Simulated assay, not measured.
Amino acid sequence: MNENLTNAQNIANIVAQEVELMSALVQLLKKEEEVLVDNTPDKLETIVLEKNTLLTQIIALEKNRNSSLSQSGLSPDAEGMNLLFSQLSTSSDVQNNWERLLNLSSAAKENNRTNGILINRHMVRNQTTLNILQQNDQTASVYGADGQSRVNSNSGRGIIAG
């Protein structure tokens, strides 16, 4: 029983950390959305690095929580968390944090979906622009695949400023 109590406290600590990291992820995804809406892609590199770091930490905590649930004889999922709440006499803090974590996860999923839509719109716009510049005819294209002009200026005479 003492081991289960220790695992329960460990799970409570993990869930609290997950809430903190997931809150940071939601804020970062909102920042990413602003950057995408403002069309300032130069700011994305820092955001992507920070997002990857947060996701790595969140995944590690989730694995630790699931492992602690298993060690307590509970299933490593929402059902296991609900059984944990019923076994603890003071589960309101853990349960509140769990609900916050679920809500934050849902918000992060929606923000990520929105950002994916924005990225797709940028990609379509860029492809449309390239199609216009290339006139959908490679032989009449002004720009090549390397982005360099295909206009032949080898007439031997350039523009002479006088």
Results as ranks from 00 to 15, higher is better:
K30D: 14
P76R: 01
L130V: 01
N103W: 10
M123C: 01
L61G: 05
D137L: 01
K109L: 10
E20A: 13
Q134W: 06
V35M: 00
L69W: 07
L44F: 07
L102D: 04
I58P: 01
S75A: 14
L55C: 07
V19T: 11
R100G: 03
A60T: 05
P76Q: 03
L104M: 02
L83F: 04
R65N: 09
T56F: 07
A60V: 02
I117G: 02
V94W: 09
L55M: 15
T56R: 04
N97D: 11
S92E: 11
N52S: 15
L83A: 02
Q87M: 07
M81Y: 01
R65V: 08
L36T: 07
I117E: 02
N115A: 07
A108V: 09
D38S: 14
L133S: 05
S91F: 02
E20H: 08
L88C: 08
Q17T: 09
N52G: 11
K63H: 14
N131Y: 04
K63T: 13
E99T: 14
E33G: 13
S92L: 11
S106M: 00
P76A: 02
D77S: 04
E45I: 11
Q27T: 12
M123R: 11
T53F: 08
M22Q: 14
K43C: 08
S72L: 01
E50C: 03
L104Y: 03
E99S: 13
R113I: 13
T56I: 05
N103R: 15
E99C: 14
D137P: 03
D93P: 10
A108R: 03
M123D: 10
T56N: 04
H122G: 09
K43G: 08
K31L: 15
N39E: 06
S23P: 08
Q95Y: 02
Q95I: 03
Q95D: 05
N97S: 09
D77L: 06
L104W: 02
A24S: 15
A108W: 01
S70A: 15
S70L: 10
S23N: 15
S91D: 00
R113L: 10
I58G: 00
I132A: 15
L21E: 10
N52M: 11
I58S: 07
D42H: 10
L102R: 02
E18S: 12
L69K: 03
D137H: 00
K30L: 14
I119C: 14
L36I: 13
A60W: 06
S89Y: 06
E32W: 14
H122F: 09
L133A: 06
E18P: 10
